[in-house]
Simulated assay, not measured.
Amino acid sequence: MFVTISATVFSALIAIVILFQIALAAGMPWGSYAMGGKFPGKFPPTMRIAALIQVIILSLIASIVLIKSGLIFPDWSSFTEAAIWFVVAFSVIATLLNVITRSVWERRIWAPVCLLMLITSIIVAIG
């Protein structure tokens, strides 16, 4: 039960991050909330492409969590036995980067989100 709840929370959080990245790629002026605030306002074209690449990566990460938890594609669970630890490592790095960023808003918004994603990914990995 904790694994299912954790996978659901993780998926909801990563969905928010994915939507945020899509918004950045579409030209929303939220650059100060990402990438250490290096690109305030609208992202330049290369960063918009990077945001779309992040959407793909984040979607794959969400899939790993959902498969490992048994919520989707249960026949693929053997693949996720190792892959889930990549998700945990990714979540550790994301948490650390969002804690040490120069962007105050990134620290306030994304550090807690990443920390919750880290905790829930560990629960899914162990469960």
Score class of each variant (00 low, 15 high):
11 S>Y: 01
16 I>C: 14
47 M>F: 03
125 A>D: 11
57 I>S: 04
25 A>Y: 02
25 A>M: 07
69 S>T: 05
79 F>K: 12
29 P>L: 06
73 F>W: 14
98 N>K: 05
25 A>S: 08
78 S>R: 13
68 K>W: 09
86 F>V: 15
74 P>Y: 12
45 P>G: 04
23 A>Q: 03
21 Q>P: 01
18 I>P: 00
15 A>D: 09
86 F>L: 15
6 S>P: 03
22 I>C: 02
122 I>E: 15
16 I>H: 09
59 S>D: 05
32 S>T: 09
26 A>Y: 08
108 R>E: 06
25 A>H: 02
61 I>W: 10
52 L>W: 05
6 S>I: 03
42 K>A: 08
82 A>N: 15
83 A>L: 12
109 I>E: 05
68 K>L: 07
80 T>G: 11
29 P>D: 03
16 I>N: 09
69 S>C: 11
95 T>K: 03
29 P>R: 03
109 I>W: 10
97 L>R: 06
117 M>W: 13
21 Q>I: 04
26 A>I: 08
92 V>F: 10
9 V>W: 02
73 F>Q: 13
125 A>H: 07
11 S>E: 08
47 M>L: 07
98 N>V: 02
41 G>A: 07
94 A>V: 11
27 G>T: 08
89 A>L: 15
61 I>S: 07
9 V>L: 08
16 I>S: 13
11 S>W: 00
69 S>Y: 02
7 A>T: 02
51 A>R: 00
108 R>F: 12
118 L>V: 13
12 A>L: 15
48 R>L: 02
18 I>H: 03
85 W>H: 13
70 G>K: 06
110 W>Y: 14
33 Y>V: 06
5 I>H: 04
21 Q>R: 13
89 A>K: 10
51 A>P: 00
84 I>W: 06
17 V>S: 08
7 A>K: 00
35 M>N: 10
61 I>C: 07
88 V>A: 13
81 E>P: 07
97 L>F: 09
101 T>R: 01
75 D>N: 15
116 L>D: 09
78 S>D: 15
101 T>L: 04
104 V>K: 11
105 W>T: 07
33 Y>I: 05
121 S>R: 04
107 R>F: 10
120 T>S: 13
28 M>R: 13
45 P>F: 05
120 T>C: 14
93 I>Q: 05
59 S>A: 12
4 T>N: 05
127 G>C: 09
37 G>H: 03
63 S>M: 13
33 Y>Q: 08
6 S>D: 07
112 P>M: 04
24 L>S: 01
22 I>E: 00
12 A>M: 14
90 F>Q: 12
97 L>W: 06
48 R>H: 02
101 T>C: 04
1 M>T: 03
13 L>R: 01
119 I>H: 12
126 I>A: 13
115 L>N: 10
12 A>G: 14
106 E>I: 00
36 G>V: 11
85 W>C: 14
122 I>V: 15
91 S>W: 10
74 P>T: 07
95 T>D: 01
27 G>D: 09
126 I>N: 11
24 L>P: 00
94 A>S: 12
63 S>R: 10
126 I>L: 15
89 A>Y: 12
91 S>R: 08
97 L>K: 05
15 A>T: 15
93 I>D: 02
70 G>F: 03
107 R>K: 13
